[in-house]
């Protein structure tokens, strides 16, 4: 609550600020659940190669489509591979690629948005119309075009995803900048003769950082869904690398009699997306940019 601010005194270290935000996030049930899921997935992604019980690419025709058992917890797929092994490994690529993709999206989207918001005028008009034009293209078509032209390597996927998911951030960053730009401290900095760079870095970024970070966190979960869709369509990760999107795509035909091979990756993917979403919401609330605040009266 705003009134509490008066009781905060001295300047806090960055570490103290971050830990305070995390504690605030975890003190809400939804934030706690979201954070737990996210942390669980991240830890799993780090340690899964060491704890996986089987080889993810070991094909065994004698073990085709086994139901879950003590030996094969989540059963086996149509090639006799262990679904548990493939599920815990399946999030790694998606997480890594989308994490770096979101960073790129944040960086270019945020900076371009702030710049447009600051300079305004014709530059702003032209850039924003280009962004609008890109927003009107269904991203999946454009992605498919890029991937089919340049291949599905990580070096292509990360910047391509980063570009397509950054478009939306441009608008958010620009809007956040517009909120700040009319304030007198910007006018004052201009009147003193600071350069555009100095105004962006010193005056605007500290004030729009939170809004952009929250938006970036939301984009991360959408990007994850997008990336999995690409894999599902066969344009993401190439087999035999385990990947949720790919696993769902392979096993969907068998759903009626071997549900286990498709349930596990679905749970993995959706829990991660829900986790990121809840975390982003809690993050927004902890920072005080709650999108669902009640009207004061």
């Amino acid at each position: 609550m705003k009134l509490d601010n008066i009781y905060q005194e001295e300047k806090k270290s960055n570490f103290a600020k971050v830990s305070e935000i995390i504690i605030t996030m975890a003190s809400r049930p939804s934030g706690f659940i979201g954070l737990s899921i996210l942390i669980f997935h991240v830890i799993l992604a780090f340690i899964s190669p060491y704890i996986a019980p089987y080889d993810f690419k070991a094909i065994n025709p004698t073990l085709m489509l086994q139901a879950p058992s003590a030996e094969y917890w989540f059963g086996t797929d149509d090639l006799g591979r262990d679904v548990f092994t493939r599920t815990i490994l399946g999030g790694r690529t998606a997480l890594t690629i989308t994490f770096f993709g979101s960073l790129i999206a944040l960086l270019w989207g945020g900076l371009l948005g702030i710049f447009c918001g600051l300079v305004g005028g014709k530059t702003d008009d032209i850039v924003m119309r280009i962004v609008d034009a890109f927003l009107s293209i269904p991203w999946i078509l454009a992605m498919l075009l890029i991937v089919s032209l340049l291949g599905t390597s990580t070096e292509v996927l990360i910047p391509a995803l980063g570009f397509f998911y950054g478009k939306g951030i441009v608008r958010v960053a620009r809007a956040a900048t517009h909120d700040v730009i009319a304030k007198d401290f910007i006018v004052s900095a201009r009147a003193r003769g600071h350069s555009n760079f100095s105004i962006i870095w010193n005056e605007i970024i500290p004030n729009v950082r939170d809004a952009i970070l929250v938006e970036g966190a939301m984009r991360w979960s959408w990007m994850l869904l997008g990336f999995s869709s690409l894999s599902f369509l066969g344009f993401g990760v190439s087999p035999p690398t385990p990947d949720w999107g790919l696993m769902i795509s392979n096993a969907r035909g068998l759903m009626s009699f071997a549900y286990w091979s498709v349930i596990a990756p679905i749970v993995g993917l959706s829990s991660l997306i829900i986790g990121i979403n809840l975390t982003a919401d809690a993050f927004a609330k902890a920072l005080g940019i709650d999108r669902s605040t009640k009207a004061p009266v």
Binding site: D184, F185, V187, A191, R192, G193, N202, N207
Partner: peptide, 19 residues
Amino acid sequence: LRIIQLIFQNPDESLNPNH
């Protein structure tokens, strides 16, 4: 630019809240 300085009406708006 230095010789002319401004003081604004509302100090809430003229001071950057994050500085």
